[in-house]
């Protein structure tokens, strides 16, 4: 069986990261800034896909920084900083989406969707299909395939059992495949090379 090199797991949090967490918990603002800068890009990526909007993603990021700084002392295990801060982000994204449902913004066609048109039809189709998923499915897809978290880590982030993560992943993948098949973008018998990315 050939070794699969396509799926490289997310960056492991280093010793340096846990030292920064300890310093931040001791009250060092500089350590907190350095710490947050390390995870900021990953958080922003996640927020962009979940919220489909750059400015909302930035607002979420700013709010996460604020909440993380206020509650950094509550973090018991420094190695879990990234999952902890991602959980704050997911909760924030969930709140923003709920708020958005209430307000029902007309300006939902965001900057992100404008940029999508520059990509290949398959990529655009995937993103649109991901955006059509409901929040719990979208969250697991983003955390798993964009950020490379393990199922256990996702369970920790979403505060749910690993079994729930597995079933959500399976269901989300099924929905994605079905959606892409309907659009004529995906067919199980096609080879990877047949798709233009």
């Amino acid at each position: 069986m050939k070794k699969n090199n396509l799926f490289i797991k997310g960056e492991k949090q280093s010793e340096d990261l846990s030292q920064l967490v300890l310093a931040a918990q001791a009250g060092s603002k500089e350590a907190f800034v350095r710490l947050f800068e390390k995870v900021k890009d990953s958080l922003y990526r996640t927020a962009c896909v979940i919220l489909e909007n750059e400015s909302d993603a930035y607002d979420a990021l700013q709010d996460v920084a604020l909440k993380a700084y206020k509650n950094i002392k509550q973090l018991r295990e420094p190695l879990f900083f990234k999952t902890w801060v991602t959980r704050i982000l997911i909760n924030k994204c969930c709140a923003i989406l709920k708020e958005r449902k209430k307000v029902s913004l007309l300006a939902d066609m965001s900057v992100l969707q404008v940029n999508l048109r520059e990509n290949s039809p398959f990529s655009v189709g995937v993103m649109e299909a991901v955006n059509r998923l409901s929040f719990p499915y979208r969250a697991v897809i983003v955390l798993r395939y964009l950020e490379g978290y393990s199922q256990k880590e996702i369970a920790r982030i979403l505060k749910c059992p690993v079994g729930t993560v597995k079933s959500r992943l399976n269901a989300a993948l099924k929905k994605l495949k079905a959606d892409l098949e309907v659009q004529g973008l995906w067919h199980p018998s096609k080879e990877e090379e047949a798709y233009e990315l």
Binding site: Y44, A57, N119, F122, K177, Y195, L197
Partner: peptide
């Protein structure tokens, strides 16, 4: 094949512009 395409597509759609700097003063 599907997971590889999904992963590549998600990464391909990432923004070229990284987020604005965090307003640390506010934090």
């Amino acid at each position: 094949t599907f997971l590889s395409l999904l992963k590549k597509s998600l990464n391909a759609n990432q923004q070229a512009n990284w987020p604005l700097p965090i307003n640390w003063g506010l934090v």
